[in-house]
Design a protein around this nucleic acid. Structure first.
Length: 605
DNA sequence: GAGGGGGCGGTTTTT
DNA sequence: CCGCCCCCTC
């Protein structure tokens, strides 16, 4: 047997060594999907002698892309007699598309130094456009308008086509905003996140020779988390793969939890229609959880009827029953969890525990109790690095150097201060050709000329954190001498989101993890608590009336349960204070689905 | 451009 | 109940 395949199970081997042609890997939770995908990439290079630059790996997060790249690199270095210099391109849909637009976007009138607007920039832009159209931002909340426009772009409906789909006065006006918004983006030489994909598809449609160029380059396409693709991403992969048909996708419909932002798990199911000679391989052996946990997970997810459900099995031990705790209140719920963690001390580490909740608002009570008891915890989520005010400010200066038409950045700088704006503009005027300066020089000069750092007092704790963030940004700047490379990197590559000072209690490494169920996807922990198992909270009240949303809640529950390796605790409260309102919720329907003999009722003592 | 009062909304969130 | 955002004032 070929060495590289020997540490895979038979199904994984089949997936990794699949000769070519369209392949769908239905990979359950904890079944080694990343393993299958990375081994497949390594197999293609080592055994099929496919040049690594002909392989393209697309993912949803930079973290996933980075991990895959690293794992492939290790596999190659272990298994090759000849030196392989590079790994295949592994990146997000967005970074891949940005790359293409930098090179070929000019065919669509997009200059290579286009700015990329993130969500905050989009909201600013939409706000401006809405006001210009004399519409009230009370009735046309920028975020809602943006969601609508984003939804349209994900469905590949352009601003010119959208009016024919618009129903009712609200949508008709949004159609106007959409039209003006796109005009605004063009004038600013900017694209938003959705445009990155939309425009590349447009490019491929209008210029078949460009599509051909990329089809020649990327002969093997591997896509991770395919259940999370929206229509635009689906069409993009189809474009790239349709000529040679060497498409491998991995996914699990039961783990589709981003339907609300356009993800469509049917892309997984419908693949057969586009590629009739599709090979389907199921990865159903689970390496993560106990038999009991898998059975509990299945007893819940099997109620979903609109998508296929895998039946996972494992050679792992039966394990303990899962624990169910009825708390008298949200406070008692938090007490119970802290008690349990204290009781486990000595047997396991704090980093073995994760507490998962449906809504961010639920974290507060938990945090209070962890602080009180002195147990260190890490809150995952919170303000992201690139969303921070000081980061956006500094980037606005740099963005304006790169693209002088970027009025969103201009407005931002204006807001920082008229004085600083003037100094900045004077400095910029004397700048001959920005391209001959490297990013770091520009970075330092701007801070010097504008005196931006003087806004913050290093003796103040909060200010100091901001200064540190700017320094962090500076170190990123040192890695990208070309300004446009740098700006693209900071727009599309999520920085490690630094936990807020008050949100972390003690040493980061040895701490309990608190996060939403959504944030837990892809992770695993020996001991998992899922809290707030109540009707109206989980499943969330907004999903109760809608069958498909209810199924998504169920999938979310499935994702949460399958994070657990050894022990699972489910808790609910008879009474709960939520948004200052007392309520008494019924026990979640998901709990009713679990066979009683798999449950042990937990008592507080 | 910061600081205070008032009003409102509050599911999940990568790029 | 809390935090965010808008808008007004200094």
């Amino acid at each position: 047997m070929i060495a590289i395949l020997s540490d895979l199970n038979p199904q994984q081997q089949r997936a990794a060594s699949h000769s070519g042609g369209p392949l769908l890997i239905l990979a359950g939770a904890g079944s080694g999907k990343t393993r299958a995908l990375t081994y497949r990439a390594a197999y293609l290079i080592l055994e099929k002698h496919i040049p690594e630059e002909n392989i393209l790996l697309l993912t949803f997060t930079n973290k996933a892309a980075g991990e895959m790249k690293e794992r492939i690199r290790i596999l190659l270095s272990q298994n090759t007699k000849y030196k392989i210099q590079n790994t295949p391109f592994a990146g997000t849909f967005h970074s891949f598309c940005a790359k293409i637009l930098r090179i070929d976007g000019n065919l669509l009138g997009i200059p290579p130094n286009f700015a990329i607007y993130d969500e905050a920039d989009q909201v600013d832009a939409i706000k401006g456009v809405t006001k210009k159209l004399d519409l009230s931002i009370k009735d046309y909340k920028p975020q809602s308008v943006l969601n609508t426009i984003s939804g349209a772009k994900n469905e590949l409906i352009s601003e010119l086509e959208y009016p024919q789909y618009a129903r009712g006065i609200w949508q008709k006006n949004v159609a106007q905003i959409y039209l003006e918004y796109q005009r605004f983006l063009r004038q600013n030489q900017a694209v938003d996140f959705d445009d990155l994909i939309f425009k590349v598809i447009d490019l491929f449609k209008k210029f078949p020779e460009v599509l051909g160029k990329y089809q020649n380059k990327y002969r093997y396409l591997l896509v991770d988390e395919y259940q999370d693709t929206n229509r635009a991403q689906y069409i993009l992969t189809k474009f790239l793969a349709k000529r040679d048909g060497n498409l491998t996708v991995v996914g699990d419909a039961s783990q589709s939890i981003y339907g609300w932002r356009g993800a469509n798990y049917r892309n997984l199911v419908n693949l057969k229609q586009d590629f009739p000679n599709l090979t389907i391989i199921n990865l159903e052996q689970n390496y993560r959880s106990t038999k009991t946990i898998l059975e509990v997970a299945y007893s819940i997810i099997c109620h979903n009827t609109t998508h296929p459900v895998l039946k996972l099995w494992t050679e792992n031990e039966e394990g303990e029953k899962i624990y169910l705790y009825e708390a008298s209140s949200e406070i008692n719920e938090a007490e119970f969890i802290v008690n349990q963690i204290v009781r486990h001390q000595g047997q396991c580490q704090l980093s073995d525990f994760a507490i998962l909740y449906r809504t961010n608002a639920q974290s507060r009570v938990l945090e209070e109790f962890f602080l009180q008891s002195g147990i260190p915890y890490v809150l995952v989520g919170g303000t992201r690095f690139y969303q921070r005010k000081e980061i956006k400010d500094v980037l606005a200066y740099l963005r304006l150097v790169s693209n002088s038409k970027d009025t969103v950045s201009f407005k931002r700088i204006e807001k920082i201060g008229k004085n600083r704006l003037e100094k900045f503009l004077n400095w910029q005027e004397n700048l001959s050709e920005s391209s001959q300066f490297n990013t770091l020089d520009l970075f330092d000069e701007i801070l010097k000329v504008t005196g931006y750092l003087e806004l913050y007092d290093p003796k103040d704790e909060e200010d100091l954190a901001r200064l540190e963030n700017i320094n962090e940004l500076r170190s990123v700047a040192s890695l990208f001498p070309d300004l446009n490379d740098f700006l693209e990197n900071v727009s599309l590559v999520e920085q490690e989101s630094l936990p807020d000072k008050p949100a972390t209690n003690g040493d980061k490494k040895e701490a309990v993890t608190l996060m939403t169920l959504h944030a837990a996807k892809g992770l695993e922990f020996p001991i998992v608590f899922i809290v707030g198992m109540e009707e109206g909270l989980f499943p969330h009240s907004r999903s109760l009336l809608n069958q498909s949303e209810l199924e998504e809640e169920r999938r979310l529950c499935y994702v949460g349960i399958t994070r657990a390796k050894k022990k699972l605790f489910l808790t609910y409260a008879r009474r709960r204070l939520y948004f200052g309102q007392h309520s008494a919720n019924e026990v979640s329907r998901f709990i009713q689905d679990i066979p009683e003999d798999l449950i042990k009722i937990a008592n507080e003592f």
